[in-house]
Amino acid sequence: MRVDLLTREYPPYVYGGAGVHVQQLARQLRQLVDLRVQCFDGPRPAPHIMGHRAPTDLAGANGALQALGTDLAMAAAAAGADVVHSHTWYTNLAGHLAKLLYGIPHVVTAHSLEPLRPWKAEQLGAGYALSSFCERVALLGADRVIAVSDAMREDVLRCYPELDPDRVVVIHNGVDTDEFAPDPDTAELRRLGVRTDRPTVACVARLTLQKGLTHLLRAAPHLAPGTQLVLCVSAPDTPEIAGQFAAAVREARGLGADVVYVEEPLSRSAARQLLSYADVFACPSVYEPLGIVNLEAMACETPVVATAVGGIPEVVADGETGLLVPLGGDGEPAEPELFAKEFTLRINELLADPDRARRMGRAGRRRAAEHFSWAAIAGQVHDVYRSMRERPEVR
């Protein structure tokens, strides 16, 4: 069976959770099917990876329109596939067109939903209407929609009530517990300017409003004295958001917070060292279908303090592998100051009890290994492919 995975992100150009997901899933699926990966950002050296660029005639056009131009090339290259599997709105239309052109099943993995990310209009401008169109057409026409959490499945059916619930299945994201494991080395941390002589709270995220990073900065001046907050934040949605965040960092420092701001994307070794060294990993997201980075922290035996939104409670077992903080609002906390205070209290609670934090860290690694292995997840995805080949439902 030939399967074409359609994705915007693929190494070496990975900046978010969806890219990590596709990279790890592809590694496992290659053992099960004849896998081709179609991605953005131009050619790759491996023969099974086809990298595409937007047509030159669209240079300077809206970014969403450029993505649609790339989708056309992807759909053409999918000739001969038995199944196409698209990830994120950037490639959803390519999968839908391939389904129509070749009469093959289209699987969509829903990593997020455009109706629940209105702030993306700041990044895409009028292209947000195009991204929303691509997602809607693809999800309603898909033969299967894979939601990365139970909460995500509920969001899919709420945003797209026309969708047949029987076509929506849940297959969680995963983590490579060989790649992410406790690492005592600190060479990468010293290079990044992270001090290794004080309590540390770490946060690794894309610079987008959904990650709730300004709420964490609001909490930073109230962390236990002597604590450093390491923010590894890259890939801003817009230059304006980058500027606003830098100003918020300066403001937090002015109020006495010890903030280390790392703007470069982390290498795997640097991420592993930081997650292993940190006393607490903080995830203040206001929208998070699952949150792979929480799994990565847990695999490195670090307790997590996170917002109780989306699929996070399906990953972080409250009181066992970390602590959850209610958002107290829909999409944003109704009382931001109260939310920041509650987030600080939970972090300080673990900083004040290192033995409890270590127990949570060990429990987190066990949970990551037992419930979120990529091999098991790839097997579930393969079962979805086989079910459609055995009982075709292409419409």
Rank of each mutant, 00 (worst) to 15 (best):
V280G: 03
R253E: 10
P221L: 07
S373I: 07
A46M: 08
L116P: 01
Q210S: 13
S86F: 01
L345R: 15
I347F: 00
A79R: 14
R367C: 04
C300A: 06
G127Y: 02
G310W: 03
E370H: 11
L338S: 11
T344P: 00
R367P: 00
V230A: 08
L113K: 03
A220Q: 06
L216K: 08
L213E: 06
V108S: 09
R2P: 02
L101P: 00
R44D: 04
L229V: 09
A317K: 06
N348Q: 07
T186S: 09
P115G: 07
A59Y: 06
L100Y: 01
M74T: 09
Y13W: 13
A257C: 05
A376R: 13
W89K: 04
Y90I: 01
V148A: 08
S112T: 11
P182E: 03
E263L: 01
D258Q: 14
A376I: 00
F343C: 05
H172P: 13
L97G: 00
T344C: 13
L139C: 08
V20T: 14
V156Q: 03
D258E: 14
R36V: 11
D143S: 07
V204N: 03
T208A: 15
E335K: 13
A297K: 01
A187K: 08
P182F: 02
L207H: 12
Q23E: 15
V108Y: 08
V84Y: 09
A242M: 11
L116Y: 11
T321D: 10
I312T: 15
D355H: 13
L25E: 07
I377C: 02
A98R: 01
E337V: 05
A308D: 11
A61E: 07
G103V: 11
L157W: 02
T7P: 04
I171F: 03
A181P: 00
D34F: 05
E264R: 14
L116N: 10
V305N: 03
Y385R: 05
S276I: 09
C300S: 12
G291Q: 04
I377A: 01
V260H: 02
G361T: 08
I49F: 05
V293D: 05
V169A: 11
G322R: 05
H48Q: 12
D155P: 01
L6D: 03
E349R: 14
P165A: 04
R195E: 14
S276N: 06
A129V: 06
T186A: 12
S234I: 00
V262P: 00
A126P: 00
M74L: 14
V37P: 00
T200K: 01
V293F: 05
R190A: 15
A121R: 15
V156T: 03
D150W: 10
E393C: 12
V148E: 03
L216D: 09
V3L: 13
D353F: 05
S267E: 06
G19I: 08
E288F: 07
A78V: 04
P161Y: 13
A299S: 13
L130Y: 03
A219C: 09
Y160A: 09
N62T: 09
L323F: 02
G319I: 11
G80C: 01
Q210E: 15
H87L: 10
G379Y: 11
G322M: 07
G42A: 10
L231C: 10
V194Q: 02
A54H: 15
D143N: 12
R386A: 14
P313T: 13
H172N: 14
A138H: 03
Y128F: 15
A282L: 07
H52I: 06
V381C: 11
D258V: 01
Y10I: 12
T186I: 12
T177S: 10
D258A: 12
L6G: 06
V156L: 06
